[in-house]
Design a protein around this nucleic acid. Sequence first.
DNA 1: CAAATTCCGATTGGTTTAGTAGGATATTAA
DNA 2: TTAATATCCTACTAAACCAATCGGAATTTG
Lengths: 150, 150
Amino acid sequence: MKFSTRGRYGVQIMVDLAQHGTEGPISLKSIADRQKLSEHYLEQLVPELRKAGLVKSIRGSQGGYILAKKPEDIYIGDVIRILEGPIAPVDCTNELDGESCCEKTDFCITREVWVKVRDSINDVVDSISLADLLHDCNKEDVKRLSELFE
Amino acid sequence: MKFSTRGRYGVQIMVDLAQHGTEGPISLKSIADRQKLSEHYLEQLVPELRKAGLVKSIRGSQGGYILAKKPEDIYIGDVIRILEGPIAPVDCTNELDGESCCEKTDFCITREVWVKVRDSINDVVDSISLADLLHDCNKEDVKRLSELFE
DNA sequence: CAAATTCCGATTGGTTTAGTAGGATATTAA
DNA sequence: TTAATATCCTACTAAACCAATCGGAATTTG
């Protein structure tokens, strides 16, 4: 029960863009350097965020990416679902009715568990915006930075 | 973000045992037949549930498995964690402090997301007992059975 | 003893994951 | 106009993981 690197790196990319977005387009290279990730691998992920309308790209020299919306309007759930596909702890929770997948078992008694888990995860990630994360991050940054001088 | 078959089958096994547990030891073969699963594969899973104290085994002819506790005292979360390992959407949420894994990123801003997801999943699966599932199942069974005669 | 059953370790085929390789296209700056 | 910097795009690959299978050994009942 793990998120893959796609969702994790995706959130890191968005946070990085939010933190540096005031400085004009941010190149993948600079994100990869800061976050210690493979630039080439990120190249596979960011276009999907672009196609989904979460970031905009500027090609060519001095180009890069910027957020397509305010951090307040970008939810972590969207980032994760774009890169990982729908959040569904088991496949049959994706379907509208549980009929087609569950004829094997006793009327799919266990389905209730997976549906509740699915809804709970989606509720959490859909309740956290990029702005929420940044806000906490800044407070944390200040705290840790000040600790360095104690 | 999926549970593997280990957790899913594990819950199915426990539900099956709860449904038929009054009839003495239940063989894996009968569970595998009812749930349409590979008996040999289940053989890998059930011993782990036994070692964890969730089921008891009776060896030899006419042997099988029975629940080791009342269905009210068996929580789905335990079944899943025994078979899948700790529920942690990313690895670093397993650690007591986020220090050792997160030096790469900007003070691990994103960790907050994964911690909340982890806690939310655990809360859900730890709030559902085997008895809860059985209760819902029986109502559903009755409803569906009656629909067959309409 | 024969059948049924749990128990145990090794192996396998397939899929997924995380990344690499190599280049095409677009833009800027010198 | 040319060199440098970027995004963009399609393949490919090595390693890990998953789901299951295989082949038996040990235990108990009838």
